[in-house]
Simulated assay, not measured.
Amino acid sequence: MGEISKNNPAKLSLDKVTTYHVWDRKNLVTVDDLLKPGIDPAPEYENPELDELAGRIVRAREKGRPVIWSMGAHVIKCGLSMYVIELINRGVITHVASNGAGSIHDFELAYLGGTSEYVPRAIEDGTFGMWEETGRWMNEAIKEGYRQGLGYGQSLAVFVEKNKDRFPYRDYCIFYNAYKKGVPATYHVTIGTDIIDQHPSADFAAKGYTSGNDFLIFCHSVSQLEGGVYLNFGSSVTAPEVFLKALSISRNLGYTVKDITTANFDIIPLGDYRKEVGQDHFHYYYRPRKNIVNRPTSLGGRGFYIEGNHKATIPNLYNKIMKRLNREV
Rank of each mutant, 00 (worst) to 15 (best):
G145W: 00
K143C: 10
Y169L: 03
G129M: 11
G149P: 08
L112S: 06
I123K: 14
Y146F: 11
H95Y: 09
R170P: 08
Y111R: 09
T94R: 02
F167R: 05
V119T: 14
N89F: 13
Q154E: 12
G100Q: 03
Y169E: 11
D125G: 13
G113P: 00
P168L: 12
E133G: 14
E117R: 08
F107T: 04
Y172S: 03
F107W: 06
E161F: 07
S98E: 03
R170K: 11
Y118Q: 11
H105R: 01
V96D: 03
S103N: 09
T94H: 11
T134F: 07
K77I: 09
V119D: 09
D106P: 06
S103H: 13
Y169V: 05
C78V: 01
K77H: 08
A110Q: 02
Y111D: 05
K77Y: 04
E144F: 15
C78Y: 04
G113F: 02
G129P: 00
Y152F: 03
G114A: 07
R166M: 03
S116C: 15
F159V: 04
R136D: 14
R121K: 15
Y169S: 12
T94E: 01
Y152M: 00
G145D: 09
L112K: 04
M130W: 02
V75Y: 04
L109N: 03
P120I: 11
D165V: 15
E117W: 04
G149E: 06
Y83K: 14
L87C: 07
R136V: 04
M130L: 15
F159W: 01
Y169T: 07
I104Y: 06
A97T: 10
V96Y: 13
V92T: 09
D106H: 14
L156E: 01
Y111Q: 05
S81D: 00
I76K: 07
I85Q: 08
D165P: 10
R166P: 07
E161M: 11
Y83F: 15
P168F: 07
E133S: 14
L80I: 02
V158M: 07
V92E: 03
I88T: 06
R136F: 10
P168N: 12
Y83I: 01
V75A: 02
E124D: 14
V84Y: 04
C173M: 01
E140W: 06
K77Q: 12
I104H: 07
M138N: 10
V119Y: 13
R170T: 12
E132C: 12
E144V: 14
W137I: 05
F167A: 11
G114M: 13
I123L: 15
L109H: 00
D171W: 02
